[in-house]
Amino acid sequence: MLPTTSLTSRDQGNGSLNSREAARHTAGAKRYKYLRRLLHFRHMDFEFALWQMLYLFTSPQMVYRNFQYRKQTKDQWARDDPAFLVLLSIWLCVSTIVFALVLGLGFVETIKLLLWVVFIDCIGVGLLIATLMWFVANKYLIKHPGRDYDVEWGYAFDVHLNAFYPLLVILHFIQLFFIHYIIMQDSFIGCFIGDTFWLIAIGYYIYVTFLGYNALPFLKNTVILLYPFALLVLLYVVSLAMGWNVTKALCIFYKYRVK
């Protein structure tokens, strides 16, 4: 899950890793260690994962600064502790159930919505975005192509999870307090508030994603990852001009999908 395969200073004595060190640093070995820790809850640092979730809202730069510290101490950028993933999964399930209650869905419909949100909205879309970002970063953003630097797919997915969490809280929690009484009403103010929630949520997703790739010192021109902001604002203005309430449309879509 390392975003870079560069050699550390302790490995540069003879210019290559010895066989034991090489085995420990392979992507397969790291993936096996990460997945194995999913079965040992007492070995996970949930307190630190909660700290990361808090700072993804208040100061996301601090979260990625910690990623840099991990690279210095453990020679690994991506998380080696699945506590964040576990807490995110729990929050995703709980918020989706509450969202289903707000929409007035039954038990079976709630289960269908939960499966849709987990496997399509989070995992499916996440895999697609992570793969796209992994390709773009390695194809166009590497400072010195051909050297032993690359953004691995695992780190790209880790960045997606960081950016997805604030979006989830904004759309699946904060927005719920406004759905019935304001957003779902046939009025401009309902359209304005609903679309503004989407503007903030997706805008924050773009920003946190930018910070994730900007933290990697071997990438260049990462500012281009902020360019989608312009398209986002344009779509926001167009949706208000057309009176298209995105939240209301998505609620109707979800109700249609689970029936």
Rank of each mutant, 00 (worst) to 15 (best):
L2Y: 11
P3D: 07
P3C: 07
T4I: 08
T5E: 15
S6G: 10
L7I: 05
S9T: 10
R10Q: 12
Q12P: 04
N14F: 14
N14L: 13
S16Y: 09
S19Y: 07
H25E: 08
H25T: 06
T26C: 03
T26Q: 09
R31K: 08
Y32T: 10
Y34P: 02
L35W: 11
L35M: 13
R36G: 09
R37K: 14
L38N: 12
L39E: 00
L39W: 09
F41I: 11
R42I: 01
D45H: 09
E47D: 01
E47Q: 09
W51L: 12
Q52A: 06
M53D: 02
M53W: 06
M53S: 04
L56N: 04
T58A: 13
T58R: 13
M62N: 13
Y64C: 04
Y64P: 00
R65T: 11
F67G: 00
K71L: 10
T73G: 03
D75S: 08
Q76W: 00
Q76C: 14
W77V: 04
A78Q: 02
A78R: 03
D81S: 04
V86R: 04
L87T: 06
L87G: 05
L87P: 03
T96Q: 07
I97G: 01
L101K: 09
V102T: 01
L103V: 02
G106F: 00
F107C: 10
F107H: 13
T110E: 12
T110L: 08
K112G: 12
K112N: 14
L114R: 02
L114S: 05
V118T: 08
D121I: 00
L127I: 13
L128F: 14
M133P: 01
W134S: 07
F135G: 07
F135K: 06
A137H: 06
I142Y: 05
H144P: 02
P145C: 07
P145Y: 04
R147D: 09
D150H: 02
E152K: 03
W153I: 05
A163T: 01
F164G: 01
Y165W: 08
P166L: 12
L167A: 09
I170V: 11
L171D: 07
L171W: 03
H172V: 00
F173H: 04
F173A: 08
I174Y: 15
F178C: 09
I179Y: 06
H180F: 07
Y181M: 11
Y181S: 15
M184H: 13
M184Y: 14
M184N: 15
Q185R: 15
S187N: 13
F188P: 06
F188C: 15
I189L: 15
I189M: 15
I193F: 02
L199W: 02
Y204D: 10
Y205S: 14
Y205P: 07
Y205V: 13
I206K: 06
T209C: 14
F210N: 09
L211A: 10
N214V: 03
N214C: 06
L216R: 00
L216Y: 01
F218C: 07
L219R: 00
L219E: 08
K220E: 13
N221E: 15
L225P: 02
L226R: 06
L226Q: 10
L232F: 12
L235W: 02
L235Y: 05
Y236S: 04
Y236G: 04
Y236V: 04
V237A: 11
L240S: 10
L240N: 09
W244K: 04
T247S: 12
A249C: 08
L250S: 11
L250Y: 05
F253P: 00
Y256F: 09
